[in-house]
Amino acid sequence: MNRQFEKTAEMVLFLPALLSVILTLAIFVFMLVFGLPLMKGGRFFELITGSWSPGHGMYGIQPMIMGTMAIASLSVFFAFPLSMGCASLISVLAPRGFSTFLRHTVRLMTGVPTVIYGFVGIFLLVPIIRELFQNGSGFCILSASLMLALLISPTMILVFMESFDRVPKSYLDAADALGGTPVQKLVYVIIPQARQGIWMGVILSMGRSLGDTLIALMLAGNAIATPGSVLDSVRTLTAHIALVIASDYESLEFKSVFACGLILYGFNALIIVMLRYVESKGTQ
């Protein structure tokens, strides 16, 4: 009876785990099945490289892919130096009291709702960008990626910080014993040792900014056009899904959101594979 009970318990715990795995697959399958009408006959390539012009029966999502890429990479570009600076400050350079304060603030920032960044962005950041560049409405790649940089920085800082703190103490002692200054310790010992963690932080934040909806939707202007400069308005894949969903779900325009979903799913899988790769390289 005892053995029977143990077997049952294991089964009861196994089923929810299996269910969660099935859920992961089901999301992919749903996107695939619903998006199929647009991709039939080898038109998938056309879909991701073509331009958007529903009047001419063209539902290419290339502009949205470009928009997503532009905003995500620019936000990581802004967030990376900021996060490196903050993580160095917290782990090495700042006096203890300030470092603790900054650490807690960064932790707390990870809990700030995305919609609030977007909301304040509209009324605070967008007017500033508009005035500063005297170009268009201010709803543009730059506004969105600045706000997004602020959103992803806390995560990046925390990952960096943890990898800085994991550097073995004996290495630090060695640097101290040789009379190294804190900055030398940081540049010659800590950062080279923490390379893996730095990569992971960057990849992880890239994933977050590729998948973010609200900031791009609220700040990037949502114009469907391939961007030419950072002051252009663009629509991301995520914003496209949010904006099109209200239309009739039999239309081909509507089907394009599932293609967007598939591509986002693919981006995410790629990010996870990259994270795994970096992680496995570090442990060897």
């Binding site: 969660s20 089901a26 998948g211 979903g261 986002l264 996870i272 994270l275």
Partner: peptide, 24 residues
């Protein structure tokens, strides 16, 4: 396999989860 799929699930953008809910 399971932990890989949970990693994927954790990373799926919330708008895609929303789209999934909508299609359900």
């Amino acid at each position: 396999v399971f932990s890989f799929s949970f990693d994927i699930l954790a990373g799926i953008p919330s708008i895609v989860i929303g789209l999934f809910g909508f299609s359900i």
